[in-house]
Amino acid sequence: MSPDDPAQRVVVTGDGPLLVEGPVEVDLPDGTTVRSERPVVALCVCRRSSIQPWCDTSHRRRARRKPPEETP
């Protein structure tokens, strides 16, 4: 990548996937590379997705913690 190449945008969401402007190639731990031609790709960071490294919205099904109750 040279300084003149446009930077890829990565959006870190609060409790969901990383959103990356595509197309993208992802190198996996087993040495394989997967590619997506989509304009925006959601990469799973919760490790619950059944279609790793892509997000399948499994993070939405996890139980949310209740905020601590205040004592008077």
Rank of each mutant, 00 (worst) to 15 (best):
M1A: 10
S2G: 12
P3F: 05
P3H: 07
P3T: 06
D4I: 02
P6S: 10
P6Y: 05
A7Y: 06
A7S: 09
Q8V: 12
Q8P: 04
R9G: 00
R9V: 14
R9D: 12
R9K: 14
V10K: 13
V11S: 11
V12F: 13
V12T: 15
V12H: 14
V12D: 14
T13I: 03
T13Q: 00
G14A: 15
P17T: 11
L18E: 02
L19M: 13
V20N: 06
V20S: 09
V20A: 15
E21I: 06
P23R: 08
V24S: 04
E25Y: 10
V26P: 01
V26C: 00
V26H: 05
D27R: 14
G31V: 02
T32Y: 02
T33V: 15
V34W: 00
R35F: 02
R35D: 00
R35H: 12
S36W: 04
R38V: 00
R38N: 11
V40W: 05
V40A: 13
V41A: 10
L43Q: 00
C44I: 13
C46W: 01
R48C: 00
S49R: 08
I51W: 01
I51C: 10
I51N: 13
Q52D: 09
Q52F: 10
Q52L: 13
P53C: 11
W54L: 12
W54F: 15
C55M: 04
D56L: 06
T57G: 01
T57L: 11
S58N: 00
S58I: 03
R61K: 10
A63H: 12
A63F: 12
R64K: 14
R64V: 08
K66G: 09
K66E: 13
K66R: 15
P68T: 08
E69Q: 12
E69C: 02
E70K: 14
P72F: 07
